[in-house]
């Protein structure tokens, strides 16, 4: 298994592990950086107040600041990841930092939807798999989106589920807006029937 698919690839990726639960999008990217009007270059701002001290210097004790983290493809985090604000800047920053997938026991609704629209895969895993990954932070991760299979370490394997439509969009590069606009006639008809 290579983990390579048409629109999504994650093969033998390394991980960063954050064991806190309920990591909100204000942590992922603080509100004071939402003044941007573009979507590029947000990796620098990812977890800004976790990665930097009051003077703006990188902290030695943050797992996101290691040379390995800069090459990591997968972020593993505690439950209810991405709660709070709907800011899409959160998945933009995670993707720009280099993450291809986020693994957690569960995700906040808006964050999960925003990830799927930006090629960042939110993979819900069981508490057992989560504990196993926390205990083995050096394990490599391979994700086969088509088969919805996650492989970790030497012989770990589990299934996961991604909404079928989102999966097709990611795999085949279908643009959701194109799909919506293909229903133009139905939208016209709906509007015509409105009071």
């Amino acid at each position: 298994m290579t983990g390579k698919t048409k629109g999504f690839e994650c093969t033998r990726a390394t991980m960063v592990v954050l064991t806190q639960n309920n990591i909100d999008t204000d942590q992922i990217i603080p509100a004071r950086y939402l003044t941007t009007t573009v979507r590029e270059g947000m990796g620098e701002l990812l977890f800004y107040d976790w990665r930097r001290d009051g003077e703006g210097n990188l902290r030695d004790d943050c797992p996101l600041n290691t040379p390995e983290a800069a090459r990591a493809g997968v972020l593993v985090a505690g439950s209810n990841f991405g709660c709070g604000s709907s800011r899409e800047h959160a998945p933009w920053a995670l993707g720009d930092f280099g993450f291809k997938a986020i693994l957690s026991t569960d995700f906040a609704d808006i964050f999960r939807a925003n990830c799927l629209k930006n090629g960042l895969l939110p993979v819900a895993i069981s508490a057992e798999v989560y504990e196993c990954l926390v205990a083995n932070p050096d394990a490599r991760i391979t994700i086969d989106l088509e088969k919805q299979e996650l492989r970790y370490g030497n012989d770990g394997m589990c299934a996961f589920k991604i909404d079928s439509f989102s999966r097709q969009c990611m795999l085949e590069g279908i643009d959701e807006l194109d799909f919506l606009l293909s229903h133009q006639d139905a939208i016209d008809a709906f509007e015509a029937g409105q009071p």
């Binding site: 709907s86 800011r87 899409e88 808006i110 629209k117 439509f165 959701e176 919506l180």
Partner: peptide, 18 residues
């Protein structure tokens, strides 16, 4: 309900959401 910026674009262009 709240939506992300990609969805804001969807609504601007189509007045609909998936």
């Amino acid at each position: 309900f709240g939506i992300g910026t990609t969805e804001v674009g969807h609504v601007l262009a189509s007045q609909c959401l998936l």
